[in-house]
Design a protein around this nucleic acid. Structure first.
Length: 727
DNA sequence: TGCGGGAGGTTTTTT
DNA sequence: ACCTCCCGCA
């Protein structure tokens, strides 16, 4: 790995400390304090580094590695941290227990769940599964059929999950955040109850259940609580601002009397409130634990001063003022750039051209990142990059295991570890020809009530139209049960059965998908235990990598959320248009502020070069173009912090101008010329924002028109009130 | 029941 | 461009 600050100083603690500017008292406090420690650290200040120091120091001083618990949000982060600690100690710290909250919860529940009466053979379901269940329930409860405004399954899942994570009841949450859905409150509550029962009946646990049940386990079983607290004498948590109330409880309950808990976080990087993260956890920490040592790290070791000035400015405009202003001693006079393209295409090609130049100047592609709010914002750019044959790696958005064919395959293995997993059975049965939702449902219901699943399947009375296919399936299940349980072997058996189905199901593009299956084979062969493979695919889905290209040094495209904690020499933040960033549905108040912090996180990823770009025109879903200004977060920024580059429209960029105040102001709504009666004639086509397209049938004396709308019939409209456009 | 075609409505972010 | 719903037909 390039530029790793730890490698050069592996056995020289003290020199390293001076090098990175943690002063002596801070270093002492971070590494040796017994009792609770709260580290509040700004972006780029080396938060994770402090955890690494502590781990290394403790192991150095003879603390048993297996009594240290390190909690992070992504498994990658914990692996990297342990690797770094290992470098510092010139030995591996592999016996340190590190993982995600969800991963640890999974292990503990499988081990101790019986204390709460769980069966240890539960399956973990991801968000897509949860949406599938809600969909199933919606139709069986007859919800949302007639009522068009009934929330979509995704919204419902978010609501249910939000209520759990924020420890609120659903009603309060809906009132606070989904006010427009109050009419449906009763139905949503009904759905929530059924969803809960469904999971219990089928041995399924979603992400929220893992945490909730772990908390219950710690609260309700003193015996287990003591075992766990006794096992871990030191607990450390990274990115503490991303924890929710349940996770904070878990940390508190898992700590033993000595309360050797150290948490690290940054309140201005809190961007996960939609899944219940609550940055007040940081504020509350001293109260929860008592007598806490608080350490603030305000020096930034990542970015140049001009970039830092800009990012400080973003956060200064926040409604809630934060306590830190970062400073750096890294010099630089390169001002961040702001580019407004005519449309998405021009924005994309500006980015492509600039990336090419940067690469020519010697910046490694892997050190360049393009960040965006939502994963579809990069579509245009991806097309341009492909046209220019620039390789890239996309992060965020759909994961490898979320594609249909991967889920199909994994379903075979899920029913092996949990025969009651009807969700997976359903999936498998639907692959059969002449078996549709109704039949699949019927069969999986029978399975759900059965003691011996294999026996039930063998004796199921199949209809002649699909009997043959069904028999093949039963045979497969028999074979899988009888086979040696090595995951690699199971894969071979399942693929042999699935291949023809696969080619039929995805006949138009199966060669492309085939590569994913090959990759799955490789992944499965790396596992000894089927259960751990199943758990991992739900908890930590593998990234989609193309085998031949994986070792190459590639440009990174990523959602801002997935780029957290990373840094790059050059960063592009694209799609900074009004209505795109902040997200259109973000309301003023806390949601708006979270969007601002999101921009802050994005911009602080940059070490040397920062480009902010936006299109002045966006395509709406119905292929209409809509003019748009830059994001309000940009227009409220102080002048002089960035340099403006304007697209010429005819190719050739780089015409630099000093930023003018006028351009930085929000773009005013374009005034439309007021239409007169003379502009209309019988038969002319018009568009109305609500009624859609229509034809003028009659023009009366006053200022009203009779218009026949294709979808809404005849309407009489007054010219001064109706916002009509002539087509 | 299952399936194919066509229309219509939709899209945040993630462990 | 993608998913879902609805309809008519086998």
């Amino acid at each position: 790995m390039n530029g790793d600050p730890f490698s050069a100083v592996a056995d020289k603690h003290s020199e390293f400390v001076d090098l990175q500017g943690l002063n002596k008292p801070q270093y002492e406090a971070v590494t040796t304090t017994e009792g609770p420690v709260l580290v509040i650290a700004g972006a780029g200040s080396g938060k994770t580094r402090t955890l690494v120091y502590r781990v290394a120091h403790l192991v150095d001083k003879g603390v048993a590695p297996e009594s240290i618990l390190l909690l992070t949000f992504t498994r990658k982060a914990s692996q990297e941290m342990l690797w770094r600690a290992g470098r510092l100690l010139n030995e591996t710290c592999s016996r340190v227990v590190g993982g995600t909250f969800h991963g640890i919860a999974n292990l503990l529940l499988r081990r101790y769940g019986s204390h709460l009466g769980f069966d240890s053979s539960f399956s973990i379901i991801d968000r897509a599964d949860a949406e599938g269940i809600v969909n199933l329930l919606k139709s069986s409860l007859g919800l949302g059929k007639k009522e068009k405004r009934f929330p979509s399954k995704r919204v419902v899942v978010n609501m249910i999950s939000g209520a759990v994570n924020k420890s609120m009841n659903l009603e309060t949450l809906v009132q606070e955040q989904y006010g427009h859905l109050l009419d449906h409150l009763e139905d949503i509550e009904k759905l929530r109850r059924h969803y809960h029962d469904f999971k219990l009946d089928h041995g399924l646990m979603d992400y929220d259940d893992l945490l909730v049940n772990l908390r219950r386990l710690l609260e309700e079983s003193p015996e287990v609580q003591q075992t766990i607290a006794g096992r871990f004498s030191y607990i450390m948590v990274d990115e503490y601002q991303d924890t929710n109330l349940i996770q904070a409880d878990i940390v508190r309950l898992a700590a033993n009397e000595s309360k050797n808990v150290m948490v690290v976080g940054d309140d201005s990087q809190s961007i996960y409130s939609f899944r219940g993260a609550d940055f007040y956890n940081i504020m509350r920490f001293p109260k929860d634990f008592g007598d806490t040592r608080v350490i603030k790290l305000e020096e930034n070791y990542r970015s140049t001063q001009p970039i830092l000035s800009l990012t400080n400015n973003i956060i200064e405009n926040a409604a809630e003022k934060y306590t830190k202003t970062l400073f750096t001693s890294i010099e630089g006079d390169w001002l961040p750039k702001l580019f407004g393209g005519r449309d998405e295409l021009e924005e994309a090609s500006f980015i492509v051209q600039t990336i090419k130049k940067l690469i020519q100047q010697g910046v490694e592609p892997a050190n360049i990142a393009v960040l965006f709010r939502s994963s579809f914002h990069s579509y245009k750019l991806e097309i341009e990059l492909t046209a220019d044959r620039i390789e890239y790696e996309k992060r965020g958005g759909l994961k490898l295991t979320e594609s249909a064919h991967m889920k199909d395959m994994i379903a075979f293995f899920r029913v092996l570890t949990n025969p009651q997993d009807t969700l997976s059975w359903n999936r498998i049965l639907l692959q059969l020809e002449k078996v549709g939702p109704a039949t699949a449902q019927k069969i999986s219901n029978t399975i759900a009530g059965a003691d011996d699943v294999l026996y039930t399947l063998q004796n199921y009375r199949a209809k002649t139209t699909w009997k043959e296919a069904f028999d093949r399936l039963v045979l497969l299940y028999e074979k899988l049960l009888g086979a040696e349980q090595k995951p690699g072997m199971l894969f071979e058996i399942a693929l042999h059965y699935y291949q023809p189905i696969f080619e039929r199901l995805y006949s138009d593009d199966y060669p492309k998908r085939q590569k994913d299956l090959d990759q799955l084979k490789g992944i499965m062969e790396g596992y000894e235990e089927l259960q751990s493979f199943i758990d991992d695919t739900a908890l930590d889905p593998p990234e989609q990598v193309n085998a031949e290209e994986s070792c190459m040094d590639r440009l990174v495209l990523s959602t801002i959320h997935s780029a957290k904690g990373l840094e790059f020499d050059a960063v592009f933040v694209m799609g900074l248009a009004d209505g795109r960033f902040p997200h259109a549905s973000a309301s003023y108040g806390e949601q708006w502020e979270e969007e601002r912090r999101l921009l802050y996180v994005a911009a602080t990823r940059a070490r040397k070069y920062l480009y902010l770009t936006y299109p002045r025109q966006l395509m709406t879903p119905d292929r209409q173009f809509r003019r748009t200004g830059m994001s309000p977060f940009l227009s409220e920024m102080s002048g002089g912090l960035f340099e403006r580059i304007n697209g010429t429209g005819a190719g050739g960029y780089g015409q630099r101008e000093q930023i003018s105040l006028e351009e930085a102001l929000p773009v005013r709504k374009k005034k439309t010329k007021k239409l007169q009666m003379e502009d209309f004639s019988v038969g002319c086509k018009v568009r109305h924002p609500f009624f859609g397209t229509g034809t003028v049938k009659k023009t009366s004396k006053g200022r009203s028109l009779d218009i026949y709308f294709d979808r809404h019939g005849l309407k009489t409209l007054h010219l001064d009130y109706a916002k009509l456009t002539i087509l």
